[in-house]
């Protein structure tokens, strides 16, 4: 009994302390360093925050560059799927426009980007808010967080809690600000809670992310009527501005809950507008 315990102790000690061939650090040292880094990060000290911000900015940039082949692959796949569906519907017409489509293959990505940028510019003109346009750099999701990283930070006056719009609809809010990048917490994230008002009845509720595509409505009044109801921000938290459109109410009878179908699909966002504040009447015109 004691021999097997001794063996276990020796093997663990050896695994922890032995550096072995070509290992510069032992596991014990690195575990200790990780614990120190974790503790410092949790203390929220200002120098640590600044350091983390610098690390974030640099890693996001490298990450965005290294993700470009994946993005290209994903864009190509989407294009291919769309192309197939068009093929099925327009088999007869396809032969006639084949040459045109070959040209479109080369320019489709640029065209899409241009179109999205035009939408953003139009939004800037029409919007009653002062916004700053930004591009999604990364949208790596995990079981822990549904978030996206944009290429604007405190250098564009972005602050924590600011609402983020896509095509004029709310998609999330800023939860992390670095100097040249920020992180958006999407509405469908498990950690997202937004006070909302439901039109036309004016009922108040909390829009809660469920980790799935559609967030759910909580704390609804009794006998809630949801036919053709839309959801807007109420601004009751004092952080988000009121009256930003979010989505439409739908009843998920299978799961027995009231869900919101977002007007902007969180998986399809590419360019966004961060709301810096409300514009004056003259600016809005």
């Amino acid at each position: 009994m004691s021999t097997s315990r001794d063996d276990f102790g020796i093997a663990i000690r050896s695994a922890l302390l032995q550096r072995g061939a070509k290992q510069k650090f032992s596991l014990f040292v690195l575990i200790l360093v990780s614990v120190i880094i974790f503790s410092l990060d949790n203390l929220n000290l200002k120098p640590v925050k600044i350091l983390r911000s610098i690390i974030n900015d640099s890693i996001y940039r490298v990450s965005a560059v290294s993700s470009s082949p994946i993005k290209f692959g994903s864009a190509s796949k989407d294009f291919f799927i769309n192309h197939l569906s068009v093929y099925k519907e327009n088999e007869r017409l396809k032969l006639e426009i084949l040459n045109l489509k070959k040209e479109q293959l080369n320019t489709s990505y640029l065209e899409t980007e241009n179109k999205k940028l035009q939408e953003i510019v139009q939004l800037d003109k029409k919007s009653p808010f002062i916004t700053v346009g930004a591009k999604i750099m990364l949208d790596k999701n995990s079981p822990y967080l549904n978030s996206a990283i944009i290429n604007k930070g405190s250098n564009s006056n972005i602050k924590l809690g600011m609402p983020v719009l896509s095509k004029g609809n709310l998609i999330g809010r800023i939860v992390e600000v670095n100097f040249i990048s920020s992180r958006i917490l999407l509405l469908n994230d498990l950690n997202s809670r937004i006070p909302v008002v439901i039109s036309p009845n004016g009922d108040q509720a909390i829009l809660t992310g469920a980790g799935r595509k559609r967030p759910i409505l909580e704390y609804l009044p009794e006998n809630f009527q949801f036919e053709q109801s839309n959801v807007y921000t109420s601004g009751k938290d004092g952080v988000l501005l009121s009256g930003i459109s979010i989505g439409e109410v739908i009843d998920n009878q299978e799961k027995q809950r009231i869900e919101v179908r977002l007007f902007t699909d969180p998986d399809q966002i590419f360019l966004v507008n961060v709301v810096l504040g409300k514009s004056t009447d003259a600016e809005a015109m």
Binding site: A15, L27, I37, N42
Partner: peptide, 26 residues
């Protein structure tokens, strides 16, 4: 950093995976 977790969380998790692997190897 990429997943916005507190710094050191994944590092500790990965190092303990390494520890189990190193133990099994020994």
């Amino acid at each position: 950093v990429v997943l916005s977790l507190p710094l050191g969380t994944s590092a500790l998790s990965y190092l303990f995976i390494s520890l189990v692997a190193a133990y099994v190897r020994n």
